[in-house]
Each structure stands twice: as structure tokens, then as C-alpha cells.
């Protein structure tokens, strides 16, 4: 910063060497940080740090009794809550994996010379912008085991569809599939941006060498679209681990507790008035997210050698 030219005009009459020693006033004032810093600190940092304390208490908002790790012990002892923990991992993994695979396929498809490309891009992306609750309610109806459109359609081609949201074995997976339906458009546009940024020389050189579509995909697109893959994985993991509204609008964690995730457990405990336990859930979610995302993003970004 100190090396840029306009030191002289800044303070007018004085000579440059003298200025160097004097503390010069940067035109990029630190007070620009002030308001956002207060906002961020008060509504984000303070609650985050406070959560570590309150997770160790029995808490009624007005007074908190310190109980040590009681909430965490309870969290890991009650089968329902443990189930929520496991479900969170399943949900995040399934949604991220499907978004990467489908997003990449759609990205390749929608960057090729295909008819109705504009229409296809729009229609794949639009669900991203629609209300999650609206999507959840709509698919809960479409997934109705007896009257729902999905099972009726499957029946016409001779497949007996599962009971989706009412079948404990399928409920979580059903919601995850809807999550993918809604979110794959975002993965796709990220891949499109990544693929479009690959210099065309690579494809021309490959063509000269006689590479086919498959070679193009594995040897050029796959490695060079790696930043896009990293972004999609990280984004969908962050989203998947803290996912709440879709699950809440479709199953409320049911049947039983079979589709509960940490975020819905946090809400249920909050509603029941167990603020300490709810906050412990928040802390666990915080730890899970950071312990997964930080090493993963470090790992994924480090191996980028191209």
C-alpha cells in the first residue's frame, strides 16, 4: 500500500520523504468495517460463542444452571437423537454425491451443441429459486403412496412404488431425492461455468489426436472442471448437513424419528423448551460441519495441480 504514488497529493504541501515517516491517512478507512463488524459480532459471533456455554447448562432463557456435559451425554444416549446424527450424515452424503454426478452429467450435456439448450438450462435451474416449503409440500403430495402421481406413474409401467414418506426405510431417502431435484440446478450451473472456462485449445488438440467424447470427458473435462467439483461438494455438504426446511415440510422427522436430522432435532428440542439440549445440538452440528468441511476443503484444494 505504501508504495502507491498519490502520497503527495494526499496531504498537499508537505514533501514526500517527510510524509513517509509520518503516519499517512489511507483513503481506505478502517471505519468502513465498523457497522458490519458490530452487526456480525452481535448477531453471529456472540451467539456462536455463547452456544458453547449454554450447551453445558439447563437453560430457560432467563436462567441457566451449569450441568457440565449432561446435554451431550443425553444426546449420545437417546436412540432418537443418535438416529438424527446418523441421518444427517446419510442425508448430506447422498445429496452431495447425487448432485456431483447429476450436476456434472447435466453440465456436460448442457454445454454441448444440443437442441433446446436454453430451455433445458432454465428448466433445470428454476427449482433452485422456488420456495423450499412449496417444493416440499408439492412432493409430499406427489409421493403419496396410494393417490400420488409418482406411484401411479410407476404402476402404469408395472412397478410397485415404495410408500416413500410413510415407509421408515424410504422416508429419509425420499426427502434427499427431492433435495437433489431442487438443488441439482445449482450444481449444474456451477459445472457449466467450470466447463465453459476450459480453454478450447485442449479440445482442439484432443481432436487432432483423435480423442472421442469419452476421452474428452475423462481426460479433459473431469480434471479441468475440478474446481467446480470442489465447489459443488463443499456447497452441497454445507447445505446438506444443516438442512431443515425440506425435511420439516415433508415429514417433520417422521415416521417416528426415522427422518430426523440434527437441525430438526434442534427445532424439536427448542419447541419442547429444552434450550440447553437444543443448543448442544447446535454445538454438535457446528463441530460436525467444521470437522468435515475444513479438512475436506484443505484436501480438495491442495491437490489441485493443473
Amino acid at each position: 500500500m505504501a508504495t502507491i504514488a498519490p502520497t503527495k497529493p494526499l496531504t498537499g504541501r508537505r514533501s514526500a520523504p517527510l510524509l513517509k515517516r509520518k503516519k499517512m491517512k489511507s483513503p481506505y478507512s478502517f471505519w468502513f468495517y465498523l457497522v458490519p463488524a458490530i452487526l456480525y459480532a452481535v448477531l453471529f459471533l456472540v451467539p456462536t460463542f455463547a452456544s458453547f456455554f449454554f450447551s453445558l447448562t439447563r437453560w430457560t432463557i432467563f436462567d441457566a444452571t451449569f450441568i457440565g456435559f449432561g446435554n451431550f451425554v443425553q444426546f449420545f444416549q437417546e436412540p432418537n437423537l443418535v438416529q438424527g446424527l446418523v441421518n444427517t450424515f446419510i442425508y448430506a452424503t447422498v445429496t452431495s454425491a447425487l448432485k456431483v454426478v447429476l450436476g456434472m452429467l447435466l453440465g456436460v450435456l448442457l454445454t454441448s451443441q444440443i437442441i433446446a439448450r436454453g430451455y433445458l438450462r432454465s428448466v433445470v435451474f428454476f427449482p433452485v429459486l422456488v420456495s423450499t416449503i412449496g417444493v416440499g409440500i408439492t412432493f409430499a403430495v406427489l409421493m403419496n403412496p396410494t393417490k400420488g402421481l409418482i406411484n401411479e406413474a410407476l404402476a402404469t409401467i408395472g412397478i410397485q412404488g415404495p410408500a416413500w414418506l410413510t415407509d421408515p426405510a424410504w422416508a429419509l431417502l425420499s426427502v434427499a431425492l427431492v433435495d437433489v431435484w431442487k438443488g441439482v440446478g445449482l450444481a449444474t450451473v456451477i459445472y457449466i461455468a467450470g466447463i465453459v472456462s476450459i480453454p478450447t485449445e485442449y479440445f482442439e488438440a484432443a481432436k487432432v489426436d483423435g480423442a472421442g467424447a469419452w476421452k474428452n470427458f475423462t481426460q479433459i473435462i473431469l480434471p479441468l472442471a475440478r474446481p467446480a467439483t470442489v465447489t459443488v461438494i463443499i456447497l452441497s455438504l454445507i447445505g446438506g448437513l444443516r438442512s431443515f426446511d425440506l425435511i420439516w415440510s415433508m415429514t417433520r422427522g417422521g415416521p417416528g424419528f426415522t427422518s430426523d436430522v440434527i437441525a430438526s432435532v434442534i427445532y424439536k428440542q427448542y419447541q419442547a423448551g429444552f434450550y440447553g439440549l437444543s443448543t448442544a445440538g447446535n454445538v454438535i452440528l457446528f463441530l460436525i460441519v467444521t470437522l468435515i468441511i475444513l479438512p475436506l476443503s484443505a484436501f480438495l484444494n491442495r491437490k489441485e495441480v493443473y
Binding site: Y40, V42, L43, F44, V46, P47, T48, A50, S51, F54, W59, I61, I238, L241, R242, A263, I266, Y267, Y270, Y275, S278, T279, N282, V283, L285, F286, V289, T290, I293, L294
Partner: peptide, 18 residues
């Protein structure tokens, strides 16, 4: 701010204080 899930009840606590 992008990664950390906001702590729900502590945020309510702060809002209530304010």
C-alpha cells in the same frame, strides 16, 4: 459466516436482550 450454522437459541437470547 458461510460455513458455521448459526446457533439458534443463543441468537434468540441475544435478540431478547436487545
Amino acid at each position: 459466516g458461510l460455513i458455521i450454522p448459526p446457533a439458534v437459541v443463543p441468537t434468540i437470547w441475544v435478540l431478547q436482550g436487545l
